[in-house]
C-alpha cells in the first residue's frame, strides 16, 4: 500500500525490486574499493540506504522496515561500535589511536585486510542507519 494512493505505481514498485539487489551489490563494491579509489563507507552507505528509501517510496515505510529487518537505529549503534573498534585495535596493538593495522592477509576480490577497512565498514552501517532513520521519519505521517 502506497502512502499516496494517487502516486501508487506498479512500474516503480517492480523496478525497485529489480534495482534493490543491484544497488546493494554496488554499495558493497564502492565500500570495498574505497581505500585507494573513489568510493568508501560513506558513499557506499548512501547507495545502500537509497535502495531501502526507494522501497519506502514505491511501496511503504512498513515494507521497507520489514525488508531491512533490523531497526535503523540499531544499525547505527552497531556501526558506531565497529568503527570505534578499528581505532581501539590500533591502540591495543601497541600503536596510536586509529593507527592502521595490516595483518598482511590478501583476499582475491576484497584486497588487503586492515583496520581502515573495518572503520569504513563501521561508517557504512552508521550512514545506512542514520539515513534510513531520517528517511523513515520524513515519510511517516504524524499520528
Amino acid at each position: 500500500m502506497a502512502r499516496w494512493p494517487e502516486m501508487e505505481s506498479v512500474i516503480l514498485s517492480r523496478a525497485t525490486r529489480l534495482m534493490m539487489p543491484v544497488l546493494i551489490v554496488f554499495s558493497v563494491f564502492l565500500l570495498l574499493r574505497g581505500h585507494n579509489a573513489p568510493g568508501g563507507g560513506f558513499v557506499g552507505g548512501l547507495i545502500a540506504s537509497t535502495a531501502f528509501a526507494l522501497l519506502a517510496i514505491s511501496d511503504s515505510v512498513d515494507v521497507a522496515r520489514q525488508t531491512l529487518r533490523i531497526e535503523p537505529r540499531r544499525v547505527m549503534g552497531f556501526g558506531l561500535l565497529v568503527a570505534l573498534s578499528a581505532g581501539l585495535i590500533g591502540l591495543l596493538s601497541g600503536g596510536s589511536f586509529f593507527e592502521g593495522v595490516w595483518p598482511g592477509i590478501k583476499l582475491p576480490v576484497i584486497g588487503k585486510l586492515g583496520t581502515p577497512m573495518l572503520f569504513d565498514i563501521g561508517v557504512f552501517f552508521v550512514v545506512v542507519g542514520f539515513t534510513l532513520t531520517v528517511v523513515f521519519t520524513l515519510l511517516t505521517e504524524e499520528d
Binding site: 531497526e71 537505529r73 540499531r74 547505527m76 549503534g77 552497531f78 558506531l80 561500535l81 570505534l84
Partner: peptide
C-alpha cells in the same frame, strides 16, 4: 561513543 552505541542497540 561506546555507551551511545550500546544504548542504540538497546533501543
Amino acid at each position: 561513543l561506546v555507551t551511545a552505541g550500546f544504548c542504540l542497540l538497546a533501543s
